[in-house]
Design a protein around this nucleic acid. Structure first.
Lengths: 387, 387
DNA sequence: GTTAGCACTCAACTATCTTGAGTGCTAATA
DNA sequence: TATTAGCACTCAAGATAGTTGAGTGCTAAC
């Protein structure tokens, strides 16, 4: 077996090759470094890229003759075969069986994503949809995100998971307590961004409405401006004592606060899943046994599981290919994810889940745009640029 | 072909045959009456029931010999074959191909559900789970329903869709307006059952907090006690004029009210889907092409589409078998549904979706229990017995 | 270093055969 | 007259073998 160019050099970090009409492509953040990665000749890169792109498109192993014809390469199939053999030897390609064409390995995809992915211009329709999405005036942040998830899954034809903005950093704007009948009451918490949370609590049966008003006033005066993340510490250290002296219904106030602190504990933010059924069209998921774990994971995904799958991070794009995913049901998939930020602080995450045979270039490009636009829109909304 | 007993008589309405430990079984409400239904001999009924139950269990066409052995019938396979031939002639059975056993037709299932379904005692575990579910003290109604949906899908191994309580009848308890920065504000509406809705609205940029307080006070004094369904009519007929005279920021008040009226229009209640992936284990949905429409429908199901599939109704249980369903993606399924009520008024619906080869007896029994229990729990909560 | 040529491989398709579960019909039986 | 044993028949599913064609690796020539 010939083994040209297997010289074990370190790879060069390169960004996306081309940029397109949408936005400047950010440098890809590599999540995983392959120790002992080899340099590839320009021709090998060309062939690897061609194989990845062909396979992404047609979902069939790519043969040497197809490749030489299809791409108008000026090399004969035999030469391509030689190169393919080398690439396989180096671990970038797999062969399902002797008489089949080649298929990119995970390592192959990784190399492609890190060094080869180009962004062919996205079709104008997609550009339009994206522009439209963010120009629309939507008042609620929740709705913006919901829509983002939907549009993104439609555009990519993959599945989208959006972690709605984390509310830890948001500050308490207002607390309200509305007594219902029979000793229950609704406790409502509004944050400075307009996020509303509510919990029901039990109160002393015959509490007077005056007492409730006093309680609410005290809570508001003490807690207004407190970031949700600090609620618990604030509460017991500073407020509890003082309340014990002032309030007749100290127990009730504590009950209310206890409920409100569950906001950040149990429910750091919402999770939006879009286009879960899109994976069903992918040939690699035609088999029910293959999709099931994935769909089950999606069905049960809450913030914590989802954030475990693609953590919030400062950088821009993350790509996890197959077994690079920690979460088992995602190990047959690739996940491209990006965080979006409010004033530079990452508060949420968008993940696109597809087969490893994914159109990385396109998804990365779209996602990059979406993450930027979303950050901008939400930051504007939150930092006061209101109407 | 012999054609005994094909005398075209009207069928007798009968309830479930046996009752079990859980609760008295209500009479099945028949959604669809088969014109010209024939009487069946007791033995034919026995055989039909046996075939349905065998097929439900093993998902394989049932043959005459299997049946005679399996059930300890005192009839020979040949006799069973004769009866089967008659039942097929009458339309209660289908035969996938000449040398296969028999399978219940839709008409067969319908007859089974109407006249034959027995409730073999449910396993103690299931009984325990159900008891536990409703004995648990859950404060929020939403959480009760969420849990119901989850538990129900786990117990039945089918998919559950719960239409959360309709909020049309609920009365306004409190309206609150919390200004944020930049001319936006959060409008919050609390109903007498503790349900909270919120919307963001734009206000006049420099509105004073006094004006906001006056506005909120007026809105509350005028609207407290109004059922949500009447909000719109109430608003324009009685309030608008008066407000025009009293309030400086009439436009803003109208904007707030406009947003609040969208609560009932766009969003009559929530929809909870449980165990969507359960259908994947059913052999009839092993094929991705078969599941896809169903999963897509479930993914997009909102109150309106879901209520179209199984409308709220006074009676207890409804069973729709295959093409008895109006909604296309459900026409390969059966849907057993029940409404739950607050003080006798149906406010929500629970649907269990499975293959036509469904364990009707078991599902009906469980669902009957759940619907009753849920009605009781919510009615108690809402009519004041809090605690 | 590149490529034409050739023998080789192997999944996928097709055709044919076998098996066995299940049927319908007929004639004997209770 | 209702039931049943017996038997020929049917047909999906599984096994076996042959064919096809896309694709390969190797070698020798350019």
């Amino acid at each position: 077996m010939r083994q040209r160019f297997a010289n074990g050099g370190r790879h060069l970090r390169g960004g996306m090759k081309a940029c397109n009409t949408l936005t400047q492509m950010s440098t890809v953040q590599v999540t995983c470094d392959w120790g002992g990665e080899q340099m590839l000749t320009p021709r090998q890169k060309l062939i690897l890229a061609a194989i990845v792109e062909d396979y992404v498109r047609y979902a069939e192993p790519v043969g040497s003759r197809t490749l030489s014809k299809h791409r108008g390469f000026q090399i004969s199939p035999a030469t391509i075969r030689n190169e393919m053999a080398d690439l396989e030897e180096l671990g970038y390609l797999d062969q399902p069986h002797t008489s089949a064409g080649r298929v990119p390995s995970q390592k192959g995809y990784r190399f492609y994503v890190d060094h080869l992915a180009t962004s062919a211009d996205i079709d104008p329709e997609t550009v339009m949809s994206l522009r439209a999405l963010f120009q629309e005036q939507m008042v609620e942040i929740e709705r913006v995100i919901q829509q983002t998830s939907t549009v993104l899954s439609q555009l990519t034809q993959y599945t989208t998971v959006v972690l709605g903005p984390k509310i830890h950093q948001e500050k308490i704007k207002h607390i309200q307590l509305i007594p219902l009948s029979g000793g229950t009451a609704v406790a409502i918490l509004v944050t400075d961004t307009g996020h509303v949370e509510n919990r029901q609590v039990h109160l002393t049966e015959d509490i007077s409405s005056d007492a409730v008003v006093r309680m609410v006033n005290l809570l508001n005066s003490k807690l207004k401006g407190t970031p949700l993340a600090n609620l618990r510490s604030h509460l017991y250290r500073e407020i509890a004592n003082e309340m014990a002296n002032t309030l007749e219904y100290f127990e009730d106030a504590i009950a209310v606060l206890d409920e409100l602190t569950t906001v950040t504990d149990q429910n750091p933010g919402k999770v939006y899943v879009g286009g879960a059924t899109n994976i069903l069209v992918q040939p690699e998921f035609r088999d029910v046994e293959k999709v099931k774990p994935l769909l089950e994971w999606l069905e049960q995904a809450d913030w914590n599981t989802a954030e475990h799958a693609f953590p919030l991070h400062g950088g821009k794009l993350q790509v996890r290919i197959g077994h690079e995913n920690d979460v088992e049901p995602l190990q047959d998939c690739s996940v491209v994810s990006a965080s979006y930020s409010v004033a530079g602080v990452p508060v949420g995450n968008i993940g696109v889940i597809g087969p490893t045979r994914m159109n990385y270039g396109r998804v990365m490009q779209i996602l990059d745009y979406v993450a930027n636009a979303l950050s901008k829109v939400i930051t504007e909304r939150v930092t006061g640029g209101g109407g």
